[in-house]
Design a protein around this nucleic acid. Structure first.
Length: 467
RNA sequence: GUGGCUGUAGCUCAGUUGGUUAGAGCGCCUGGUUGUGGUCCAGGAGGUCGCCGGUUCAAAUCCGGUCAGCCACCCCA
């Protein structure tokens, strides 16, 4: 019998060498988040559909859940669904547990989400998000809006993903702007937000046309469009914005944006630490080059109320956003009659990693996760070979023993193909003499060493990427 | 969901105007005698040519259907 084994489009899986690289990236993400005091949580893959759709997420993007054989009265596909992001489940989680949480509640969450759209390069139907969010009780300082992009900057610098730009804006600026030309209905404002969000992609002409469809006169649409010509450094843009007298909402957005942009650099560590190595680059000095105001960023999700972020790789703009988020003052309030403003951001890990592999920025070569392979020459002495491995593991060195009955040649080929940097070889005679051969596969160099010295000697040969 | 392109070995692909036992590269296995991989050489395993139906003496090759994949739109990490 042969079943269909083709992959399902949009549901990615990776080879070991890639998964190892992904996991290493997750290690960096997790440790960076934790270094800022975020605590981990996980939430179920499944939520009630009404919870997921409470804040205007498009229904057609959500996967329903049901048993293949449903029974009468059982919760079905229209009642239960796979989560679409990690932010809405977080809001539900906070609404449910707020009595036992400490605020400001800082959590990170690294889990898959599902979206029912057609897959494409860099666009998946299942992908992993790495979120951080801060939720306040009643109030939440704008300092948190400033901290979030600083953390992301530091994290991406540690990951070494090449040049990127975190673009920031404040929705109140755009909302105020649209209100000033007579768009008062939420629906109309939202439509206008989505339109200008596409400015870079669809061009000025189409944006003008779409704004016209929303009821703006030609002059008003031109005025809106002209607003997006505002350019320069962050400070220059802010100066120009402050000179405009639009309305209270607009002014509030500008003030918030200014506060966030000014506070952000203080959250950046001056230098990157990688174990004992310290990069001499002044991270605070280069930060402004990676963190820029972009007035056309609006974000598609409805729940954002103020600050919004969107991050792209400078060399691969067509990939789209790899990390975005923002401020949501009313999301938790959807589920409980209290006020818990929040701000957060999400890294699209699957998209990010798949692009880094493609571009060769991250190398996925070795499929070995242990640096050492102990080969077996004489199966009559298997216990002695196993003891060699145990000795290495006791020394904290991950080690694999080749247990199949194959020739040494085949065992070495296996070591080569899988990418072990170090191989231990020993004949029964050598074992009896308390000695083994340690082979460095990369430099084709061998040394005969005393078994008693195996741990320290092997450790000195382990390449950095094996930790 | 809509439109365009594609569907041949594990992977990337070639297959002349339809004509004998369907090919290449990579990968995999074996060997090239002395415990030693990565290079080279020789040999080998592996395919009902996405699936179903039709035209034909004859179909991977033409036609119809179907399924799947890729790209664009929508939307977004």
């Amino acid at each position: 019998m042969s079943l269909r084994i083709q992959p399902i489009s949009g549901f990615p899986e990776f080879l070991p060498e890639q998964q190892i690289a992904i996991n290493r990236a997750v290690d960096v993400i997790r440790s960076t988040y934790e270094s800022f005091g975020f605590v981990p949580i996980e939430t179920p893959a499944v939520e009630r559909t009404e919870v997921l759709l409470a804040k205007g997420i498009a229904e057609k993007e959500v996967y329903g859940l049901r048993r293949i054989q449903e029974e009468e009265g059982e919760e079905s596909a229209k009642d239960l669904a796979l989560r679409f992001d990690l932010t809405v489940p977080l809001a539900r989680y906070v609404a449910q547990h707020y009595g036992r949480l400490r605020f400001p509640f800082r959590r990170y969450q690294i889990q898959p989400v599902w979206r029912g759209e057609r897959a494409q390069a860099g666009r998946y139907r299942q992908f992993v998000q790495c979120d951080i969010d801060v939720i306040g009780d009643e109030a939440l300082s704008l300092e948190y809006d400033a901290e979030v992009p600083a953390i992301i900057f530091q994290l991406f610098r540690r990951l070494g993903i090449g040049k990127f730009t975190i673009r920031i804006n404040n929705r109140k600026i755009l909302t105020g702007l649209f209100q000033s030309v007579g768009l008062t209905e939420d629906v109309a404002v939202r439509a206008a937000l989505n339109t200008v969000d596409d400015l870079e992609k669809i061009g000025a002409g189409k944006v003008l046309h779409k704004l016209g469809e929303l009821g703006l006169t030609g002059a008003q649409a031109e005025r809106i469009l002209h607003f997006f010509d505002t350019a320069g450094s962050n400070a220059e843009i802010l100066t120009q914005l402050k000179q405009l007298e639009i309305n209270a909402t607009f002014a509030e957005g500008v003030a918030e944006l200014e506060a966030v942009v000014e506070a952000a650099p203080d959250h950046v560590l001056p230098h990157l630490h990688d174990g004992e190595l310290v990069d001499v680059t002044d991270e605070r000095a280069i930060f402004p080059d990676y963190f820029r105001i972009d007035l056309s960023i609006a974000r598609g999700l409805d729940y954002y109320t103020g600050t919004v972020y969107e991050t792209r790789l400078d060399d691969f703009p067509q990939v789209g956003s790899i990390c975005s988020g923002g401020r949501y003052d009313n999301l938790v309030g959807t589920f409980v009659d209290k006020t818990f403003p929040g701000v957060g951001i999400s890294i699209g890990l699957t998209r990010l990693m798949s692009r880094l592999f493609e571009a060769g920025i991250v190398k996925a070569e070795a499929a070995a996760i242990a640096p050492v392979l102990v080969t077996v020459q004489d199966r009559a002495h298997l216990p002695a070979y196993k003891e060699l491995a145990a000795r290495l593991r006791r020394a904290g060195i991950a080690t694999e023993v080749f247990l199949d009955d194959r020739k040494l040649k085949a065992q070495l080929r296996y070591a080569d193909r899988k990418g072990f940097p170090i191989v231990v070889i020993a004949s029964p005679e050598e074992l009896a003499a308390g000695q083994v051969v340690v082979k460095n596969m990369r430099y084709a160099q061998e040394d005969k060493v005393a078994i008693a010295q195996l741990g320290p000697i092997v450790r000195s040969l382990i390449p950095v990427e094996f930790g």
